[in-house]
Amino acid sequence: MSTTSTKLSVSDLDASYGDHQVLHSIDMDIPAKEVTALIGPSGCGKSTYLRCLNRMHELTTAATVNGTVQLDGADIYHDDIDPVLLRRHIGMVFQKPAPFPTWSIADNVLAGLKLTGGVPDNADEIVEKALKGAALWEEVKDKLDKPGTSLSGGQQQRLCIARAITVEPDVLLMDEPCSAIDPVATARVENLIHELGENYTIVVVTHNMQQAARISDKTAFLMMGELVEFDETSKLFSNPSKQETEDYITGKFG
């Protein structure tokens, strides 16, 4: 069980919006090909932290980052790294399913390739593979030319996951991927996350603690911009080491 290697190694990471520091020296080794969940109260910095992992944070006005994040040992904040290219290695799925409204289902799946240059000749194959990977193929194979937004919320979210895996990233970051969809769709997406965890390193932000417990191998608890506890999910939810963690997950919010 302890044979997993580290995919993302975060050390002494600070992040701010202007004068407001939201993350305080986070140290964390995110294991490869496992699902890592980030939990914590609103405003604890978990989404900001996620966005630091593929350099989306710096797109926000006045946002700054200090510290290092290593992807397979290479610092992603090094001067030589192009953040645009980095994001093809570290994909992201957002809270609200956001298929491109003017694009068909197939085009949405290919979005990463279309946006960044070209669609190869075997586009149909890629679409099928990605949609199968996102457990959506059977539901949409007969209407690939329909708009992506014609799908239900849960299907849209899986479409967005398909879109994210089309560019074959190493890591998938998910920012509250189930918070805008119904329980059945949530179950489908959770199942998908679990399956994708076999082949991808996944980091999921969720404000649903039960969800974190269901889908993740490891869980990190953040509070007020600090990493309070990071441990095996089963350990953290049955016997957390820190009183703050215990109080938060059992629902004692002071």
């Binding site: 593929n54 989306m56 797109l59 645009v84 290219l85 980095l86 994001r87 093809r88 994909g91 992201m92 799925v93 957002f94 809270q95 609200k96 956001a98 491109f100 409204p101 003017t102 979005a111 990463g112 279309k114 946006l115 960044t116 967005c160 879109r163 994210a164 560019v167």
Partner: peptide, 24 residues
């Protein structure tokens, strides 16, 4: 969210404006 989705897929600002923002 659409701009972010585009950036998240590794698109540049220009690619995002031209293919996502302007059509919408």
């Amino acid at each position: 969210s659409l701009r972010e989705a585009s950036y998240g897929l590794g698109a540049t600002k220009w690619e995002t404006i031209r293919q996502v923002v302007l059509p919408m």
